[in-house]
Design a protein around this nucleic acid. Structure first.
Lengths: 165, 165
DNA sequence: CGAGAATGCTTGGACGTCCAACTATCGGAC
DNA sequence: GTCCGATAGTTGGACGTCCAAGCATTCTCG
């Protein structure tokens, strides 16, 4: 994988400083690092999910439903929890419904609302997928526990500062 | 923006621990946090670039060329530096070329290779875009300098552990 | 020197994301 | 009680990413 003899982010930082943007250099490095880390992680996650024919979005959908009390939630609440556009929810639910992992159910009192309900097959698939993810990704981060804790702390402050949750 | 009364990541962690996956909980939280942080950052970046009609991929392409000695690089080297698929480079160069920010030039000795060369207009656009990014994103991260340093340190170790660079 | 492997780029298709526009339903205010 | 704004979900289009396949060129090695 390593095609380069140097760290591209260190290199970018050097360039930033050379151009008189010392103020912005650490932030630039942080943004670039997060983007790159996300690319690496998503590649690993998608690989762990491939045997189950799931994508990360669809996995998140199924896991959220599996953890909910009734196994069903309004699409709008799903969107709020996963922080994605309503159209993306429609898409994810469509695909899961085609595979029988989820089914659309009308809301009992509000006819505008549609619920997504996880099926027993959906529960099976998401259980196996979680097992894989835990083994191949979440417990194999490649950095120490202190680093993971520090990361979680910083990113929690970051998200809070930007009005997440 | 804040639609929720709780942190979804804390909630997910709680669920993980309840299901006996304590081992994987910190890694799960870290992965989810990185994904979410990247979403937040990309939204901010894209907004800062919108006035210049650029996307982040195209900005990265232009900045890389602007910093290169000759203002031109083989498409394959661009792909290696930005860590994206060749097809994505083709796409980005196509769009920049249509706007006159970049032009394709044949490699002097290797006829397989195509160079992307930044134009003077491309240099103007990327300079203004960088100014915007520095002001609106890179120097407005919402967390302290120590947090940014810690983040950069952890993510550098993470990237190194996964064979980046 | 010549055939097969490797490299460089492009194309077409699948997927996910967002936005804007639209339909349907609900709820509050006068 | 009715109308108008807010809310819920879907659709179609634009964009970016990846993969697989294909074509051209260059390199390697017998």
């Amino acid at each position: 994988m390593a095609k380069l003899a140097f760290d591209p982010i260190d290199e970018a930082r050097r360039q930033w400083e050379e151009h008189g943007w010392e103020e912005a250099a650490p932030g630039m490095a942080a943004v670039t690092s997060i983007v790159r880390a996300q690319q690496i992680l998503m590649a690993r996650v998608e690989e762990a999910l491939r045997p189950h024919d799931l994508t990360f979005s669809r996995y998140e959908l199924l896991q959220l439903l599996a953890f909910s009390k009734a196994g069903a939630l309004p699409l709008s609440r799903i969107g709020a929890r996963l922080q994605v556009h309503p159209a993306s929810i429609t898409n994810a639910v469509d695909r899961c419904e085609k595979r029988g992992l989820v089914q659309r159910v009308p809301h009992p009192t509000d006819r505008r609302t549609t619920l997504a309900e996880i099926t027993s097959q959906g529960r099976e698939v998401v259980a196996k997928a979680t097992e894989n993810l835990n083994r191949e990704v979440f417990t194999a981060m490649g950095i120490g526990n202190e680093d993971i804790s520090a990361l979680n702390g910083v990113l929690k402050r970051f998200r809070e500062a930007h009005g997440d949750y």
